[in-house]
C-alpha cells in the first residue's frame, strides 16, 4: 500500500525544498508537505481581483457600519448632534467618503450575489467566472451612479 509505505521513507527525503523554504518566513506552523503557490506566482486576472476587492470592501463596510451606529446615536441625541452629522456629510471630505462608501457597498452587494450563486454551484466555468466578475466591477460603478443620481434628484445632501 502506498500510504503505509510513505512512513518508511527516510525523513530527509520527505521534505520538498519548496515547503521547507516557505515556512521559515512566516508564522505558520512548519510543514513538510508541499504548499500550494500563493498570489505572487500568478499573473493578475479578474477572478483574483474581484475576490481580493470583495474582502477589502468588506473591511471598509465594517468601518462604515460604525459610522452608521454613530449617525443613529446622533439622530437620537438631538438636533445639534444631527447637524454635525449632516455638516460632515455635506463637506467635500464627507462626500468623498460617501461616494467611496456607496461604491464599496454596491460592489460587495453585487459581488456577494456572485458568491452566493457560486455557493449554489453556478457560474464555475472559466468564461462564466470572468463574465460575472466583470459584471460585479462594472455593475458596481453603474449602481453607484444610479444611487447618487437619485440622491441629487431627491434634493441632494443636507
Amino acid at each position: 500500500m502506498v500510504v503505509a509505505s510513505i512512513s518508511r521513507i527516510p525523513s530527509r527525503l520527505r521534505t520538498s525544498g519548496y515547503a521547507s523554504q516557505t515556512h521559515k518566513a512566516s508564522h505558520m506552523p512548519p510543514t513538510a508537505r508541499p504548499l500550494s503557490p500563493h498570489l505572487q506566482v500568478y499573473r493578475p486576472q479578474i477572478q483574483m481581483v474581484t475576490s481580493i476587492v470583495h474582502r477589502a470592501t468588506g473591511i471598509i463596510l465594517v468601518v462604515g457600519s460604525l459610522l452608521i451606529a454613530a449617525a443613529l446615536l446622533a439622530l437620537a441625541q438631538g438636533a445639534d448632534a444631527w447637524s454635525c452629522v449632516t455638516a460632515l456629510a455635506a463637506s467635500w471630505f464627507g462626500l468623498l467618503i460617501l461616494f467611496g462608501w456607496t461604491w464599496a457597498l454596491a460592489y460587495h452587494w453585487l459581488n456577494g450575489i456572485r458568491h452566493l450563486l457560486q455557493d449554489a454551484g453556478w457560474g464555475y466555468s472559466i468564461d462564466q467566472f470572468v463574465r460575472n466578475s466583470w459584471i460585479s466591477v462594472i455593475g458596481s460603478l453603474v449602481l453607484t451612479a444610479l444611487v447618487w443620481a437619485a440622491v441629487y434628484y431627491y434634493g441632494g445632501i443636507a
Binding site: L105, W109, G112, I113, V147, V151, Y152, G155, I157, A158
Partner: peptide, 26 residues
C-alpha cells in the same frame, strides 16, 4: 450566508430610505 441573503434585501431598503431622506431636515 443567511445574513448575506437578509442583507441583499435590507441593504436595498436602507439605501432607499437614505435616498428618500436626502435633503430633509432633522
Amino acid at each position: 450566508r443567511i445574513t448575506a441573503i437578509a442583507l441583499l434585501v435590507l441593504v436595498i431598503y436602507f439605501v432607499a430610505l437614505l435616498v428618500s431622506l436626502a435633503g430633509s431636515d432633522y
